[in-house]
Design a protein around this nucleic acid. Sequence first.
DNA 1: CGTCGGTTTTACCAGATGGTCAAAATGCGT
DNA 2: ACGCATTTTGACCATCTGGTAAAACCGACG
Lengths: 207, 207
Amino acid sequence: MQQRARTATRIQRKNTAAILEAALEVFSAHGYRGATVDQIAQAAGLSKPNLLYYFPSKEALHMTLLDGLLETWLDPLKAMDPEGEPLEEILAYVRRKLEMSRDFPRESRLFANEIIQGAPRIAPALSGELKALVDDMAGVINGWIASGKIAEVDPYHLIFSIWSLTQHYADFDVQVHAVLGGPEVDPYPAAQAYLETLFTRMLTPKG
Amino acid sequence: MQQRARTATRIQRKNTAAILEAALEVFSAHGYRGATVDQIAQAAGLSKPNLLYYFPSKEALHMTLLDGLLETWLDPLKAMDPEGEPLEEILAYVRRKLEMSRDFPRESRLFANEIIQGAPRIAPALSGELKALVDDMAGVINGWIASGKIAEVDPYHLIFSIWSLTQHYADFDVQVHAVLGGPEVDPYPAAQAYLETLFTRMLTPKG
DNA sequence: CGTCGGTTTTACCAGATGGTCAAAATGCGT
DNA sequence: ACGCATTTTGACCATCTGGTAAAACCGACG
């Protein structure tokens, strides 16, 4: 029986960690339906029934992953400081998001897969927590615009543009490398420079 | 037996068209593995064996779809005129790509699904045809920069940014609508305006 | 040593899925 | 209406997949 969460054995911690790591790897590479429990179990060094001893179902495992992810995903947005220097704050956000694409591409792809397929399992979180947060940030940005600290822009589409531009380098990784000519090319330095220029020119008041 | 492509019956044309339409719908919504042949057949108003009479396998059906897609996808890029007014040409490209996201979101998602999962079936086309085309365009853009018609930017990342920004509205549709507050909101007019501003500010020479 | 909670394995199942095949039905030119 | 090629169907398979049950294993502690 699954013990009632009181304490967690050393073995338990080790195995759940290995499973989540393996699940992230497999789900992000093949999507929910493309991934098989067997594949994940093997990647975690366990047998399928053994994995199912720790997580009651494939679905539950996937959900656990997504829940943990959403928090990680929203953190950088929360970290923006309404009192800070506007352009600096936005550029810092862009930088942080781009670093996340570089350092956690699997998480990005897991998220992308879910959204593309209609977000069947996280739709509530999108129109709930996420929308609330974005609405807040949009207010802050509008404040910055009103005080003349940055140029006029639609704050929602500004945020969309940051998301799409930064996540592109994780989600469409193969395309980027195909066009740039091979896996040995590191697109991130140039991307970082490009995005900084882009948003600086976009947001600097008056032209 | 499959007749040897000599002519195509009326029935043949009607059914293959219905199948491709249904396949696009289902593949783009659920991904390759998430889609079932039965589902596609039903959506096309046929039985599964009947569908397999027209396409030898699920894989072949998917490939047919992807092949046709790539052409459609590259067309707007080819349509750019090196002799045209640089900023105008780029803005027109952005506009065309955004219209494609609005009018053909399923095609966009089909493509996105494929790339995210490592482009198992179109990797050659990416590093072949696509790369060649982008290399050409990068050359043209560099020419525009050299002649002072537009500001200095990395042409490759400029192209990436156009792709990511425009396709975002198709691929991440649910997220956009969740944040904007419901399916009745049409994000495209504002997106169009935002992107025009963005690239105008980015590319107008001297600041 | 024994036993007891926690862990792992072996064997298994039911349903889904991609695909095959031969026969039946249908269209179509004459 | 006839005969042929095309199209459609129904029955069927092998395999894969998520999940279960129960037995075996293991390590700590009395």
